[in-house]
Design a protein around this nucleic acid. Sequence first.
DNA 1: CTCTCGTAGATGCACCATACACATAGCGCC
DNA 2: GGCGCTATGTGTATGGTGCATCTACGAGAG
Lengths: 124, 124
Amino acid sequence: MSGEPAAEFQIGMPRNYLRPALLLLLGEGTSHGYELLEQLTALGLDRPDPGRVYRSLRAMDEDGLVRSEWTPSTTGPARRTYALTSEGRDWLHALAGSLAEVSRALGSYQRRYQRLTTQDEPVR
Amino acid sequence: MSGEPAAEFQIGMPRNYLRPALLLLLGEGTSHGYELLEQLTALGLDRPDPGRVYRSLRAMDEDGLVRSEWTPSTTGPARRTYALTSEGRDWLHALAGSLAEVSRALGSYQRRYQRLTTQDEPVR
DNA sequence: CTCTCGTAGATGCACCATACACATAGCGCC
DNA sequence: GGCGCTATGTGTATGGTGCATCTACGAGAG
């Protein structure tokens, strides 16, 4: 036994998945980075990198997909709350469509994989 | 209406998707790079980069997931035919499992997205 | 009072997957 | 010989991602 599949080489979420994920969360209501950071785990991003999230939000701000404003807090540092723009909503729909294509492709993968395994090991 | 989502910023397949895709195809039978290149489109990779595919195959060869041997051809250049090893089969199962997780995450995304759109626009 | 912890936002940088271009070679055909 | 298809590669730039680090505010512990 030389090497069983290690935990290395893990499959990740789709490329550029962070944007549609953030847009979806913001579509459900305005929020700020730190809160979005926690909600992202429910969408498949395990322990997302804060720096990445904040950068993505700022980038979408500059692209006009979201707009932000500072909200002072009495219980801690100020928050930059983000809200979805109409253009951002358009992007949300478009990106959700792209994700649906990816999902369909993964479905065909799994159907093909299961067909392989079921006819490979009919015994047992 | 200021800006509709451009074709840019397309969502891609999951990170490291190429390996499980190739392993699945090789699980169905031995093949060579050029043929795999064409079959990959059926698994969601649209016009995959040949260089990437060949590199990935060589890498998996060095990792022991596949083994290769030259097969002369009378109708063209020689082919390097790849066959799945037992270790490669183990990896196939493991990676298919990881892909299933990704698929589940995307499913939750879409359910949440549709819930948003249906309650956002109940009219029609 | 200071130190630490949790909240909140942000930058710098290195790595690595991916994308794009390009090179090589055999074979069939006009 | 030149062209196109098959077939396998290499070189390199780009850009998304991961990791480390920094600042700052408020609250509670010691």
